[in-house]
Nucleic acid binder design. Structure first.
Lengths: 240, 240
DNA sequence: CGAAAAATATGATTTATATCATATCGATGG
DNA sequence: CCATCGATATGATATAAATCATATTTTTCG
């Protein structure tokens, strides 16, 4: 493997920062970050961290997409979260002072910054605004995770898939003509199955059915949502 | 319905406080709390708050047990959390500044205090120790919820039931003779089903099987764990 | 206390989804 | 550019668990 090249992505110039948790930290803090952080271009398939290892810092996604997942004792993968530009990952383990409870792997290449633990904690402890924001973020994350739990526990695979497509449309949708929206994230059928907690073949079959119902159209790896209202009807609720 | 009687349970004398998030707030803060809070004896079946309503304060359980749950669009219940003496509930909605995202109902009667939102936020904003503790709590809660999600998404009902019994043993176990431990919480089979996300009949059947395997013994409503190692083998992992 | 209601128990049947199997398509890299 | 490997697709079959049905036991409360 070639040595990873450290690239220069200044926080102050980062296009994603204003949407991130760092949207209103001080200039001094920004400068310290830029001085201490590293930023690397990751390729698809590279892993940022592994479950069970010690967190030494925080990942901040400048571009690209990442999946955060756990592997069960019998080797099955469950995706907990998808992260994109502007998202932080790995803060939960830092705050709970635990080893990572999940792994994170790049699914679409991009530049990802790494902020040393000490700097993150420094800002956390000296910037009450940031502290409050971080707390709110954890609280929001918890609310989302609770909703996911309920969905997976109580809804059929068909409903969960429809709900997941709607969720992906919200996060990764690129508006097209008419009602149609392209879901702009290259998820394999297997990834999709590992989000909703089902078998890959089941996802493939259900996507075919949704296609036959003209709810979606399959553009190679990506999915085009043709009839969001139809999907809402399939999901029979919203939220995952 | 008879008017609820406000009972006197001083925080400073509360036997559960030292185990709670209020374990190290200042005396002044304690006094303010005692002045402003109310404390009511709730009977089984009474609801502390309903999903969709606005949180006006924080519940602090002095005694008794509470289930926190969501109801899906098709009327199914999913229990997210069980709370006992020393536990706080309802803080997530306060911190995220949302309506309640779940309901909370008493399953074993007890005294439950209600701390006005303003007092909670006051302590939160003026006591950095408490703030940090609250943040850690949310982070821990999130880690637990993630593990639950994985378990429900990837494990069989049989494995989930075994894991749940082990979890309940940890939280509510009363050591008996030999390896045996009584799970001291009066959960109906339906509640148990709503924790693991399955049908009531399935729980009843599987409990019968575990009884036949001499892993547990059914003491009326309560369950006696006879062979925890056997249950671990059934669960094939630990954590829910 | 005793009737009614709720919870538990168990059987029969159905069904959604997993698993296994095989074929085709498409991407990747030597 | 072709060979190989992984992803997608679809069919056949197995199975865990839901649902429906009906006793029996336990709890509730008038």
């Amino acid at each position: 493997m070639a040595t990873k090249k450290n690239i220069k992505v200044h926080c102050s110039l980062c296009g994603s920062r204003h949407r991130s948790l760092f949207s209103d930290i001080t200039n001094t803090e920004l400068e310290t970050l830029d001085l201490h952080k590293s930023c690397i271009l990751y390729k698809k398939g590279q892993t940022l961290y592994y479950e069970g290892t010690r967190p030494m810092g925080l990942f901040c996604i400048n571009s690209g997409k990442v999946k955060v997942y756990k592997i069960t004792s019998d080797g099955k993968e469950q995706i907990l979260n998808l992260a994109k530009a502007g998202d932080f990952i790995g803060y939960r383990a830092l705050i709970s002072e635990e080893f990572y409870s999940a792994s994170a792997t790049v699914i679409e290449e991009g530049a990802i910054c790494y902020i040393p633990k000490a700097d993150f904690l420094e800002i956390l402890n000296n910037n009450p605004r940031f502290f409050r924001k971080m707390m709110k973020k954890l609280s929001d994350d918890l609310g989302i995770m609770e909703q996911k739990l309920v969905t997976i526990a109580q809804k059929s695979v068909r409903e969960r898939l429809a709900a997941t497509l709607l969720m992906l449309k919200e996060s990764y949708g690129m508006e097209g003509e008419e009602e149609s929206t392209l879901i702009d994230i290259a998820l394999s059928r297997e990834d999709l199955a590992n989000i909703i907690g089902t078998a890959t073949e089941t996802v493939i079959r259900l996507l075919s059915e949704f296609k036959n119902q003209e709810l979606i159209s399959l553009q190679g790896k990506k999915i085009l949502v043709l009839d969001p209202k139809g999907l809402v009807k399939e999901a029979d609720f919203y939220g995952i």
